[in-house]
Design a protein around this nucleic acid. Structure first.
Lengths: 222, 222, 222, 222
DNA sequence: CATGAATGAGGATTCATTCAT
DNA sequence: AATGAATGAATCCTCATTCAT
């Protein structure tokens, strides 16, 4: 009698909402905001179309809820990383691989972000929840760079947001542009070997960039 | 009666089509495939909605035409580069900067590619024109890497498609994810100084990656 | 357990119903029968939407209750008048001013009656309560006219219902058509001076009508 | 081949619109703005529901068009009156009877105005067309009063807008409140004799009002 | 007496597309 | 080569009402 949540009961608002959100996430990420059909979402839900409006007010409201839920999930992921005890290069490699793996395993999130960009991030701007995302990655990168410079692992005083962009761009692009890139270059980006090679590559690239000296060719230390 | 093209006539099929395509490019890139409105396109055109169907058959037909036109434009750009006479590092830097500048100046193209990816590149696959894009960039990169390895500038035997992806990802992401990235990190990616810094950064990163040794931490020579 | 009415208890059925009726009166009179929203009423109520159905059965049931409550209120008003002891002209003027003031101070009632007319008085017909309204005004007017004819104050043998209509029409119209009339003639009917002038005017008009001779032009004195 | 309008041709936009407006007028006046059903209007039209949106944009747009059309019609009616050559009392009687007859024969218009008042004349305010209605009646009444005062027919210096209201109120109320008034007083206002009696009554009342002296009882002749 | 969750049926509106000229 | 009028088929959304507790 004590526990009540998560069981098979009919009136479980939380579960109903979560059900709708899960289905909606897929529909939006597959068809875009305008292309998604509320009817299609409703059909694949345990509940009816009416409930979507009951809980989310409108198609846009649902889309926003989907977006917020997606962002909330990564935040959790990042926060769980324990990098402070690793040597700088290893720490950075771990962080990069985490980002890489996240995008690789969450194509829905990647697609939603692409869609949101097509809409000039209009919904994200309206969402306090998302705007308040405290981006801990930046602090992690900053700390790693500082430690790396201090112990001589790195030589370049790079801006942490720029470095994050370098990392993100590659990890994100692999997933977001999978189809066009794959088509043009006739390459299947979901092959295991390719994934592994790219995973190493982006880490190598970022690390070599930080190790190399600024404003010139990498001069080997004498 | 003889000459007919490019004059100021009212009924100039080519001009009419080009007019429609220009407007449609903007509409599609702003609202996505499903979000774009045929009516909206027609309204901003010199001609009527009926003409869109006359020339392009359907909304999808128009979208495909827009996509092909956008791809046709880059092809031209790449083909014009003269890199063979430059030393490898300089050649690579030039190529990267060209890619960077292209994406920076063609946000519509970037957006269209994002949209096409949301649709699993379905239209691109159907378009002979786009599939026949012979991707000369890959050959260029391949040649540069070969020359760089030969003359000792580079040490890493990287796959040219992978390198192209590293370059593309960053250049593309900067534009495609401008809005969400800018919102989350409160950074205006269209600031001149930022553009300049990023332009140098991606070139430095790629070059340092190729200069560094494979399969492990960059061990300084000597 | 003994006393229950009128106290501050939470669960006071009478107070709950009265609360709902007050809110509903405003909602119906502002938006009409079809335009009124049960949700909107519920929201502004101390109780929930479910209670509306508990007490009034349906939206129409609530509307009818609102209508009956409004009619019940005027009946009281009219019944309180003591006109028998006043001279005919004065009595009539008092009666007219009472009607005038009633409509002026009860725009909600006026609007409800307008709404009811749009629906062909269908609900009123179904309401015993309203049909049983014994319209004492008619008897009052009848008596006044009789006394006026007897003592020579009036010369016209007018039908009391017609006279009531002449009075009602003006008093009602001022309030019911306040918005369109005000808009077309750019006149604010709620200005104090205008109210006062109209209040006198309708009394003067009715009285001069009863004083003038029937069936012909009023022959000027002297 | 010359004539084209008003025939039975399919593509006759004017006729299509007029058809929609006629049907919509009835639907709106019968059910109110919120109660009217676009589907119901479409069904009774020669064309489809789609055409309603094609020409009028929305239900509100259609309602506004209906309202404007109704107002445009009276304006025409009023303008056609030729009162200048009649003696003041006769002129006034003619004007009053015209107003009376108009409301009596145009219950749809009366109902629309009632509906518009329920909505606080919000649509009318937004309509330039209606706001620009130049209300010639006022000038007519003003002229009649002036002539009547000059030739001694009238003695009261009444405000023409007030007089117009006195007239309008009665004529309008008879129609607008036909159902509630009829129900309460068990009187059928559409009976020929009643109509005739009321038609005379309002004229008599207004005329006797203007004939009587201001600020006091009407002094009996002799 | 009271309530939050749920809903079927219907209602307004939009959209890509075609017809007649 | 061009066009204004017309449209069927969705599509989003709302509303009064009821259920389970």
């Amino acid at each position: 009698m004590a526990e009540r949540q998560g069981n098979g009961r009919k009136n479980d608002p939380q579960r109903t909402q979560e059900d709708i959100l899960a289905v909606a996430t897929e529909e939006f990420s597959t068809h875009g905001l305008a292309g998604a059909r509320v009817d299609a979402i409703a059909e694949r839900t345990r509940t009816s179309k009416r409930m979507i409006y009951y809980y989310f007010g409108s198609k846009e409201g649902l889309y926003l809820a989907v977006l917020e839920r997606s962002y909330r999930r990564i935040r959790t992921l990042e926060a769980d990383l324990e990098l402070a005890n690793l040597p700088p290069e290893k720490a950075l490699r771990t962080l990069i691989e985490t980002t890489f793996d996240h995008d690789e395993t969450n194509p829905d999130f990647v697609r939603l972000v692409s869609i949101e960009n097509i809409h000039h991030a209009a919904h994200m701007l309206r969402s306090e929840a998302i705007r308040e995302l405290n981006v801990s990655v930046i602090q992690m990168i900053e700390a790693i760079i500082a430690r790396g410079l201090a112990d001589g692992t790195f030589r370049r005083k790079a801006d942490p947001i720029d470095v994050h962009m370098l990392i993100s761009a590659f990890c994100f692009f692999r997933v977001s542009n999978r189809y066009t890139f794959g088509t043009i270059f006739r390459r299947d980006l979901s092959e295991k070997a390719t994934i592994e090679r790219h995973r190493t590559m982006i880490a190598d690239a970022v690390i070599s960039y930080l190790k190399s000296a600024e404003g010139g060719p990498v001069t080997p230390p004498g």
